[in-house]
Design a protein around this nucleic acid. Structure first.
Lengths: 234, 234
DNA sequence: TCAAAAGTGTTGCGTGTACACCCATGG
DNA sequence: CCATGGGTGTACACGCAACACTTTTGA
């Protein structure tokens, strides 16, 4: 407990792990770094926190800059600060993970930043400690999605139950029984059936559903226990 | 994405929420701040991260300084950085929460720092945003303890099942059925019954148990579901 | 008419919960 | 001998998992 003078000052940055779902597998958005060190290498979207900004604001700014989207799901993951994580200067980075609807991203896409979506299982190595940030984010996503209905953030406003199941299956790299899955999902009372069907991916067509926003807010903190097997979480 | 030059540097600090269990209720350790601003007010144990230290090392250092204990359970909670959270200078603080055996603390107690244990329900207001750090830590503790067997960190090496139940009851501010509780706890296979009994708090005496360290490591990530009612978690 | 995906019901089993009585002992 | 807290067993209900067949329709 020492006074403020003579304390070392550090840089403070934010890095975003951005998840999306392309209809069949989970993807993450990474960019090519535009400055030294490690220029041209793949990296998480990130940047320094600006004066007057707090961390969530900085994370949201970076996300909007890259995707054109606002109001997306954003959650603080952890602070990373190994003194030598950035070779140039001591930088503390606070990682955030974001869940976005990949279709909206496509509409907004500007090619200003060299960004690319990679399948989570085939992503290239990233700079510094970004790979461990991603690993932690994947773990947290599984953990949280087993308990709270956050995966809806990855889908468009209208979606079908088979699409939702595909999403859960790719997050957990597992398969679920479709009868049990739909019953469990519907029993939450979170979904509202629509009159229209999605007819592209099958002949019969699957009914669209929408989230009941009111119940979603209310029930967000409820345990849903989509995944019971503990091994799938760690 | 801008170069490093001309970026603002900030102070980086660590604050520790230290939980203990006195046998009947949950307590937290707070200290009187020894320097301006807010000198003399109650605050979390904290300090600036020193050059060459990373965050967990700084948190452990602060904890050892205050309690004399080493190797205690320590987990990163979140980074806090409202630009005006510290009135003197922009400081990013990373909060950690610690679980310690309060009896060991008493043995090690040095009065060098003006520290005090408060019942969680009767703690005084703390400076800056420390109250919201504590609130988040309480939430995280409940959340995590519902899933992982972390509360053992708050007990001595030998403990009885009634003591353990008292601990869970004070964490969740609820009461549990003792028959169901002991069955559930014993079914984890985490406990080893001892031959001796604890005879102070009852005439019959309650058997001591110890943690099976090997199984504790193995099963740490398992769901235990001690608390099923979702309302108790948020 | 057939292939491909959507949708739906039942049963068994295991886990959680509610609940009541006996045991050991110090005073 | 009695008051206090410790320890145990059972029955019921609910939730989860396993499992197969019918429906729709585009090609």
């Amino acid at each position: 407990m020492i006074g403020y003078t003579r304390q070392k000052h550090v840089l403070i940055a934010v890095d975003c792990i951005i998840f999306g779902f392309d209809g069949s597998s989970m993807r993450q958005l990474v960019v090519k770094r535009s400055f030294e060190p490690a220029k041209g290498k793949w990296t998480l979207a990130g940047g320094f926190v600006q004066p007057g900004e707090d961390l969530p604001v900085a994370a949201a700014r970076i996300l909007t800059l890259l995707t054109g989207l606002e109001g997306v799901y954003l959650e603080q993951l952890a602070a990373f600060d190994h003194p030598d994580r950035d070779p140039k200067e001591r930088t503390v980075s606070v990682a955030y993970f974001a869940l976005i609807d990949i279709n909206q991203y496509k509409q907004q896409l500007s090619n200003e930043y060299q960004a690319a979506w990679f399948d989570l299982r085939e992503a290239p190595p990233l700079i510094f400690d970004h790979d461990s940030m991603v690993a932690l984010a994947k773990e947290r996503l599984r953990y949280k999605a087993a308990i709270h209905p956050i995966l809806f953030e990855l889908l468009p406003a209208r979606f079908t139950i088979p699409q939702l199941q595909q999403l859960y299956e790719s997050v957990y790299e597992a398969t679920f029984d479709k009868r049990n899955f739909s019953r469990k999902i519907l029993s939450t009372g979170l979904l509202v059936k629509q009159k229209e069907k999605e007819k592209e991916s099958s002949k019969k067509g699957a009914y669209y559903y929408k989230l009941d926003k009111r119940r979603y807010q209310e029930k967000f903190h409820s345990f849903l226990n989509f995944v019971t097997d503990p091994e799938k979480l760690k």
